[in-house]
Write a protein that binds this DNA or RNA. Sequence first.
DNA 1: GCACAATCATTAGCGGGCCGAACGATTCGT
DNA 2: ACGAATCGTTCGGCCCGCTAATGATTGTGC
Lengths: 159, 159
Amino acid sequence: MENPSEDTPTRWEGLPSWLLSQTANHAHRLVGDGFSSVGARGYHYRLLTTLEEAGPASQAALGRRSGIHLSDMVATINELAESGLVERAPDPSDRRRNIISLTSAGKRQLRRLEKRLAESQDELLAPLSPEERQQLAGLLSRLLDHHNGRTGTPEEPWS
Amino acid sequence: MENPSEDTPTRWEGLPSWLLSQTANHAHRLVGDGFSSVGARGYHYRLLTTLEEAGPASQAALGRRSGIHLSDMVATINELAESGLVERAPDPSDRRRNIISLTSAGKRQLRRLEKRLAESQDELLAPLSPEERQQLAGLLSRLLDHHNGRTGTPEEPWS
DNA sequence: GCACAATCATTAGCGGGCCGAACGATTCGT
DNA sequence: ACGAATCGTTCGGCCCGCTAATGATTGTGC
């Protein structure tokens, strides 16, 4: 990507999945650049946010809430803990668990990340009017609901 | 992802970049599953298509047309050549180059991939009406043009 | 009360797509 | 003829999503 030199009007360019992937790549790049400008990446933001919303919790619980895979949680928490943005303490009432909590430095970092995030969103949507932005969000949400909801979820809850 | 158990109405869920990434993930999964059901992946489709459109060419040229990084081309061509979908022959007129060409088996595979691709597109857009699909494509194209065109390209072609 | 099942944290690894750095071989520009 | 550019290749990295296996620890059924 990034170098279409020999101008590239190729066959797949019009496919919805391609348009989606490409714009998502741009979005990802914009957001990622914003995050990395303060030494973070997506998982860091997601974990910090979840932590602020849900309060201190075990890694497994945070994983469930944030949608971050357990095995990725370990690394993410390690990284955040190393920077003092997060604290890992053993749960006295269940020695299998760690209780992860947000430090004040973590909160400050979260504020920075949110700022960057907001900027990226603006940059991403720059060419669209407010109504168009909402149209886009609406259409994407519909697709998302469809593919999250009716995907593999049995109608009758298994007993 | 995939396991929101402790229902996850988190803060970032409404962000355009998030909606984009998530729907792109679904698209990517759908398309990828379709491809892998005939033993291929995205790069294979892109290379085969480029090859059919542009005819036999060097790896570098194909890389430019397809947007596939040179270093990834090597592996992609290796894989396709191993399955006899593509042929690698030295260019007699320039001994640095290989000339890659599509075999008839490659063409047949390409037909299969296109079929799968079409199916994935349908599955992806299932919940949208034809007009909505076009709206979506239009909005995404606008974003894409914006971020591809006016990004770092100097107005005055450098002399 | 005890064996078994389930949960938690951790480590290791794979895969796709995208990218950069380096290197030898070759060809081109002048 | 010499330096610059191009080509193919290998190696490595990033991010995000996922699987599998292991060792602790907890709980549950009988």
